[in-house]
Simulated scan of single mutants.
Amino acid sequence: MANILIPYYSAYGHIYEMAQSVAEGAKRVDGTEVKIVKIEEFDAVKEAMSGQEAYVQAQNVQDAVETATHDHLRWADGIIWGIPTRYGSMPAQMKQFLDSAGGLWASGELEGKVTSIFTSTGSVHGGQETTIITSLVPLLHFGLLYVGLPYSENPEQLTKEGIGGTPYGASTLAGPDGSATPDQRDLTMAGRLGARVAKIAGKLSS
């Protein structure tokens, strides 16, 4: 049995949609309990983006999702982070949440928990790999155990088509204008990531 937490940040809904598939994959593993929680948006961003209909609609869809807390991290045996790219690394909203968890770092409460990352970018070379790799650094400081997405479980990665998928974690393309939706193959890979983390977290927690 394992508790799987999926904390995510999503401005336009792409990461939120991926989070649903990650959760579905984790739930397919017997004895797994899953929670999806969102990283709180900055008030300044809400105000600045209030004139963008796509942003407003995406935020309204996520309105009922519970806001992530440190207690959620304590509850989890495995944590799968939904982190969109901002210039090749995590957005400030996610960084602030991790920065605020210094007490958990100091106490070592997250050490030994399984973790992974899924992401979204505007273009094929917009930071799918760098976002995951750079976001891994603070997770290692917390003592989390990182799980990737190997080619043996994810043959869709071996393609020249413009879809997501990396050995570092699941990913999707939002498109330069954010109008693209996750390809079904991206969602499939996201589900496999959820299942992989849930299986490993279950073995370690038992």
Score class of each variant (00 low, 15 high):
D177H: 02
W75K: 12
V114K: 11
Y16Q: 13
T134E: 05
S171D: 00
P138T: 05
A76R: 08
T85C: 06
V22I: 15
I83T: 13
Y9A: 06
T121N: 00
Q20T: 06
D186G: 03
S152V: 12
P167Y: 01
Q128A: 13
P182Y: 02
M189Y: 01
A54I: 11
P138C: 07
T188R: 12
H14Y: 06
Y9C: 08
G112V: 09
S50K: 15
L158D: 05
S50Q: 14
G13D: 12
H125E: 11
Q20V: 10
A64M: 07
G112D: 08
Q93C: 06
V37N: 04
G164F: 02
T121P: 01
T134N: 14
I133F: 04
V37H: 04
T32P: 02
V29A: 03
Y16D: 14
N154K: 01
A106N: 13
L98N: 04
M1F: 01
G112L: 08
A54F: 12
T115M: 11
I163A: 00
G194D: 08
F97Q: 13
Q20I: 10
D177R: 06
G108E: 09
T32F: 09
L136C: 05
E161V: 00
L204Y: 10
T115E: 01
A64W: 03
E40V: 11
A190N: 04
T166F: 01
G112I: 10
V114A: 14
N3E: 12
A170L: 09
Y9T: 04
S116D: 09
Y168G: 02
Q59A: 07
R86W: 12
G78M: 04
T172N: 09
K27C: 02
K46S: 13
I133A: 12
Y16T: 03
E47R: 14
V37P: 00
G169M: 05
I163T: 14
S206V: 10
M1Y: 03
G164C: 04
F142W: 05
A180C: 03
T115I: 02
I4S: 08
G126F: 10
I6P: 04
T69F: 11
L73K: 02
G143Y: 07
D43W: 00
S21D: 10
A68T: 14
L5I: 12
M90Y: 05
V137D: 13
A68V: 15
L173G: 01
K160V: 12
D30H: 10
T181A: 14
Y168I: 01
P167I: 15
W75V: 10
T188N: 13
G25C: 09
A76T: 09
L98V: 13
S205D: 08
Y9I: 07
T130V: 10
T131P: 07
D183Y: 01
G102S: 12
G126T: 03
T159W: 00
